[in-house]
Design a protein around this nucleic acid. Structure first.
Lengths: 201, 201
DNA sequence: TGGATTAGACCGACCGGTCGGTCAGTTAGT
DNA sequence: ACTAACTGACCGACCGGTCGGTCTAATCCA
């Protein structure tokens, strides 16, 4: 049994080292050798645990995405109303800036890379489509609970996702540029103001 | 004089070929040899006209940026009011999707690349800061002309830039996903609705 | 129980290929 | 004759991935 434990430890070390290197240097600029050095592991070991460099990245990406989605769902299910949930979600993106700001350029790098490869592409936009549906459902829920006007949920979802994505991008590219959480909150307030039903908070 | 003409022609051919290749394959995946083939020019010629691959890209980037900025200023100076100008500017981003959609992943790729290199970085965020100032000034102008409430121009500029950037990203990554111009217009309308002074259009 | 056998974890030199960039040499305009 | 424009073979660095081999823990068999 000891061997299996050690094996899994090595695998995790590789994953962690990869995350560190990718975050610091980007995907392309990180050599497999660099990952191996950081993990204190040989190339053979790396290719024993993963079929390719890309596979390592994809696993990272999926793990990251899963935890992000889980957090969003947690907020949605625990908030008192849809507008309140939206507000709390923007605040959460603020947390992202603090804890994982370095990973976002990497994420974008992956997106651009995937955009050239039709195979990877479908898998990549899946989470994006998920979020659009996520917000569309949320808006729909708001309409049903009576806190939001009878707008087109799809349309509003696109606006919200656009705003969120842009916010994240600005946060990434100009971390010192201001209190992005506050900007985020005010922007969502502005959007909410336009679609909310009077008399609700 | 004939030589100088030919030289400039070659230079432009290289620039055009580079734009084509970069747009099609991305920056990293485009080899200098590929650019040379497309331009029908030898490697030596390319390095006679440009000091490096990156220099070619930077020149492309700056040219593109200049024309974009010029267009924005043209709209600003010819619109009847600030809200009207904003609305026309979103519509313009729609044109971008049509005419230069392929270049945007490239633009983003460059951003991520630049984010790792402190030297390139300052030059890269310069246009971004420019746009924030551009919109802040615009909002300020709107306040002075009496069409916009007394908001914080900087803050609103950040919201607008975030929304615009996110819109562009969505347009890039999901071109088939909907009528992005309409989404853009409605989003800006929503934002405007929150900051506009009553009784103006 | 203990020696033999097996299988998986791991090592690191090595490979084929690519890429950005160079340079000695050729051509053609002035 | 001189120079700018241009050629293309070539260089060294690098990179993702491979492969023959080593070590060790688990398993089998007598």
């Amino acid at each position: 049994m000891k061997e299996k434990q050690k094996s899994e430890e090595t695998r995790n070390r590789i994953l962690e080292a990869a995350e560190e290197c990718f975050t610091r240097y980007g995907y392309d600029s990180t050599g497999v050798a660099e990952i191996c050095n950081t993990a204190g592991v040989s190339k053979g070991a790396l290719y024993h645990h993963f079929p390719s460099k890309q596979a390592i990245f994809v696993e990272m990406f999926e793990t990251w995405m899963r935890s992000f989605v889980a957090e969003m769902e947690r907020i949605r299910d625990s908030a008192a109303s849809v507008p309140a949930a939206l507000l709390r979600m923007v605040k959460m993106t603020g947390l992202i800036f603090q804890t994982a700001a370095g990973q976002l350029p990497l994420f974008i790098e992956f997106l651009t890379k995937a955009s050239r490869d039709p195979e990877t592409w479908k898998a990549t936009i899946a989470p994006y489509k998920f979020f659009r549906k996520f917000f569309a459902d949320l808006i729909h829920q708001g309409i049903e609970e009576g806190t939001i006007q009878e707008v087109d949920p799809e349309r509003i979802a696109k606006i919200i996702v656009a705003y969120g994505a842009g916010l994240v991008m600005q946060g990434v590219f100009d971390p010192e540029g201001g209190r992005w959480v506050d900007v985020g909150v005010q922007g969502i307030r502005l959007i909410l103001k336009g679609i909310i039903k009077e008399g609700t908070g």
